[in-house]
Design a protein around this nucleic acid. Sequence first.
DNA 1: GAGCTCTTTTACGGTACGTAGAAATATTGG
DNA 2: CCAATATTTCTACGTACCGTAAAAGAGCTC
Lengths: 123, 123
Amino acid sequence: MASLGDLERSVMDLLWDSAEPLTANDLRDDLAALGTDAKELAVTTVLTVLARLEKKGLVIRERTTRPHRYTASSTREDHTVGLLNDALGTAQDREAVLARFIGGISADEAASLRAILDTVKSA
Amino acid sequence: MASLGDLERSVMDLLWDSAEPLTANDLRDDLAALGTDAKELAVTTVLTVLARLEKKGLVIRERTTRPHRYTASSTREDHTVGLLNDALGTAQDREAVLARFIGGISADEAASLRAILDTVKSA
DNA sequence: GAGCTCTTTTACGGTACGTAGAAATATTGG
DNA sequence: CCAATATTTCTACGTACCGTAAAAGAGCTC
């Protein structure tokens, strides 16, 4: 799976947080509003990263509307799950990894996990 | 956390699978023995990636012995757990991600997870 | 100290990413 | 319909990472 650069990541975060599709100009403005950077990017820069994200399959571009509108192709959570599976790989040591991972999570999270597991017990 | 290139990854796999520290020459030979590539790398190539892996903190180099000997600085599982936590991030959506992740694992694995959770229930 | 082994230094080509100007294309106000 | 404006595409540059390895330096051995 594709890993993201800093700007790509920021753009994806905005798209993931937006209920509506966004245009390159929307994104340029939203990016400028972040973190008091006051650094206004050129809109071509935003368009370039959007094209790259589209090629990676992470965003969908509506070419019918004139300012093209962009949407994340999957939710942030689903994307993260993809990253998790990439990290876990198809190896045999999945269980060993999961055991260590669970060893490192909080009690609260362990409880949540248990609840989630019960929910999907039927699977 | 550092992501690995293909050769770096192969070297780490060999180090992780080895009980003993390995030298660059050991690794060159082991790499050649992999996958019937028959491609014998120059030992300087191996030394370069080892230096990079050392800089990334993934391998430890024994400089006292003359052919330097290299060891993975953590287990493969611990490294993978680091990748998992990187992917999960520190965000609040950890639970949502974990829920989706668990939704996608096999029943067998779900059972294993439950067992693991019970083991660390005290945490 | 000459030769061998091992390590360090330097380097080159490829790819990814941030960045954006220039050029092409589309929209719109008159 | 045309000129001004908005939007997209094309091209490009700098940096960083990685595979790859020659060249140069350093230490050991006879």
